[in-house]
Amino acid sequence: MAVQALDAERLPIDWQKLALPAVLIAVAYGLIPTYASSYLVEAILLPFLALSLAAVGLNLLTGYCGQLSLGSSAFMAVGAFAAYNFNLRVEALPLVATMILAGISAAGIGILFGLPSLRLRGFYLAVSTLAAQFFVQWALTKFGWFSNDNPSGVISAPHLTVAGFSLDGPTGRYLLSVTMVIVLTGLVWRLVNSAIGRNFIAVRDNETAARVIGVPVLRTKLLAFAISSFIIGVAGVLWAFTYLRTVEPAGFNLDRSFQILFIIIIGGLASIRGAFLGAAFIVVFPLVLSRLGAFAFGGLFDSGVLDMSQRIVLGALIIIFLIAEPNGLSALFDRLKRRIGSRSS
């Protein structure tokens, strides 16, 4: 009883909290499909959405549950290749079902490579997630079956249709992507705010205490691996089907895994909003850097120099964020909001 009363009290605050998502959804479904150029969609929004989702998934495992993973892109690869094969080999499988099955495949592999977490902690576990990274990439390249015997292991996206509507154009792919991202992020949001999500945090903050009070530590870790890999797997499908359209196993390499890790460090560990802010940053930052570089140095700033300076700036940002703002852009964003709030009132 007391609980319901409390909920009623909190309701107005909840509305305020819902305002921002409501605006975002209106923008996502109203403004963008009508006004965004196809360059904006293809070069920025589609990679942003796929990477955001992958970062949400990794954040669940690393940010919330405290299990550092260096193999995220392996699970993206599993998702992408599983979706390709389900689509290829199962007659008339609806696209959404394909994606869910791909997510489940990634979750299965995730549990398999999460099993060492039952005995290993910290760096030992992080290194073992690298095993997933290298093994998956090798298996997808080595066994032609995965790519329907394409000589270099390349897969291409099938036609995307949902309920008879073709989604092959930029807007269609965008709508598919944004819908998947919104739905899955919503579910993750519910999860992290539930008792299960608090178990994740308990395991992260003090595994020993968690075990003693009765948190099923092993099950909690495996669940984190499974759900995280599911989400990252679906993100892999979006990456392959809606953004790149053709991918090869080498596209899901260690650098991609690090990129996703960097997204959650820069965006903010254990923050769903952080995953989106970080992904936006990672997608936009190279574009800005190349413009700036070309402006400042002209022809000297070629693609090699761009690549190197990108690495340097990114590495420096990681360290700066870890030192100065461990909670990432998400915390910066909060501070900014508070300042604006205090000024307007």
Partner: peptide, 26 residues
């Protein structure tokens, strides 16, 4: 970063490796 968690330090060295690699080749 003294007194921060080993994971934080590890991630910092990850950033460091990007800087050093980039700088070396630049």
């Amino acid at each position: 970063l003294v007194n921060r968690s080993p994971m934080t330090l590890f991630m910092a060295t990850l950033g460091l490796s990007y800087i050093i690699e980039g700088a070396a080749q630049l």
